[in-house]
């Protein structure tokens, strides 16, 4: 896990939502942010090609084509 990245992301969360959570809860949030970074690291390990698109297709909308 990249602890520096987790620390930075946690600081952002704390800055934005710190007033909504208690100190004890903040500790739990920190652990959760660390788990999120750990999960992201697993994804980042897998190499993809430039042409590998997200598995979701955006379709421009027209009512008569519904």
């Amino acid at each position: 896990m990249d602890s520096e990245e987790a620390e930075i992301l946690f600081s952002l969360v704390k800055e934005k939502y710190g007033d909504k959570i208690t100190d004890e809860e903040l500790d739990e949030v920190k652990k959760a942010v660390e788990r999120i970074v750990e999960t992201s690291m697993e994804l980042r390990k897998v190499e993809l090609g430039n042409w590998d698109e997200p598995f979701s297709v955006f379709k421009p909308y027209r009512r008569d084509e519904e």
Partner: peptide
């Protein structure tokens, strides 16, 4: 009660 905050990261 604090669950939604971490995932904003």
């Amino acid at each position: 009660r604090y669950g939604p905050y971490a995932r904003t990261a």
